[in-house]
Amino acid sequence: MQRVLCVDENELVQAGLRSILSDEPWVASCLVAPSMEVAWQVARRHRPQLVLVSTSLGGRSGLELCTTFKKHMSHVRVVLMSGEGRLSAAQALHHGADASLSKHMPRAAIAAVLRRVAEGGRVFPKDAGPPAVQLSPRELDILQHVASGLSNPEVAATLNLSRHTVKQHTSAVYRKLGVRNRAQAASRAQELGLLP
């Protein structure tokens, strides 16, 4: 069980993150702070294990806060959140972040990233430009059914396709996602925000 601190000046974003985290079994409590100063006071008092930091905090960069955490509370895992544009993985790593995510990602994808980081992982989306993984509408369709636990014959029946066609599409999806099985495909797709 982990204490999580969300640092963002927007109350709606704070409420959204609180809502996402309240559904997560590994979260003990979710603290919020609207500024760097308040975040630092809250962190010293409550000792969170995971901190989400917005890259724009009242004109001062959240990158600075990320660096401060890494310097003075090295045990804390920090996730940088960007609203506008995409933060490069190199930039995030340079400031000591363990992950970066976009505020525009689907709820399930944000929860998946945070869980991975809480478990000790690092998650950085591919740098700017089009998404690294581009699936056809049919491949996305099949991915969603596979991720929900259906077998290839069940997917074939549901989508009115031959088993051979489903197998071909499933293989293409695995190849594009760089995974070997259904569980990995579902996990990777959530990280990339491909699943609702």
Rank of each mutant, 00 (worst) to 15 (best):
T55I: 10
A90C: 04
V179H: 10
V133P: 04
G121Q: 00
L63G: 05
R86Q: 03
R122K: 06
S35V: 08
M81I: 12
S35P: 14
K126N: 12
P137I: 07
A186V: 09
K167I: 01
L192A: 04
S88C: 09
H164V: 15
A92R: 02
C66T: 14
D127A: 06
S82Q: 13
T68Q: 15
A183D: 13
R188P: 13
A99Q: 10
E191Y: 14
Q2S: 03
C6D: 13
D98F: 10
A189T: 00
M36D: 12
H145Y: 05
C30A: 14
H145A: 13
V76R: 10
A128W: 01
D127T: 13
A92T: 06
S54Y: 07
R138W: 08
H72D: 08
D23F: 07
L80H: 12
E37I: 02
Y174R: 07
R138D: 09
S100D: 12
V155L: 15
L177V: 02
A90F: 11
A92G: 14
G83W: 06
R107V: 15
W40H: 09
K126I: 06
A132M: 00
H46E: 11
P153I: 01
F69Q: 04
W26G: 09
V42H: 03
E64A: 08
R163L: 14
E191M: 13
E84K: 15
A43F: 08
L87M: 11
A15H: 09
E11W: 02
V133I: 03
V4R: 11
R138M: 14
L87A: 07
L140R: 02
V32C: 12
S102I: 02
M81H: 03
R163W: 08
D8R: 09
L143P: 04
A89I: 08
Y174H: 13
R45H: 13
V13Y: 01
K103A: 12
A147Y: 07
L65M: 00
S29K: 10
S102V: 08
L50V: 15
R182G: 00
L12R: 11
A92Q: 10
L65Q: 00
G59E: 01
E139A: 12
H164S: 15
P34N: 13
T158Q: 13
T158K: 14
H72V: 04
E64P: 02
W40P: 06
R188K: 14
H164A: 15
I142V: 15
L177E: 01
K167V: 00
A118N: 11
R175P: 04
S61F: 07
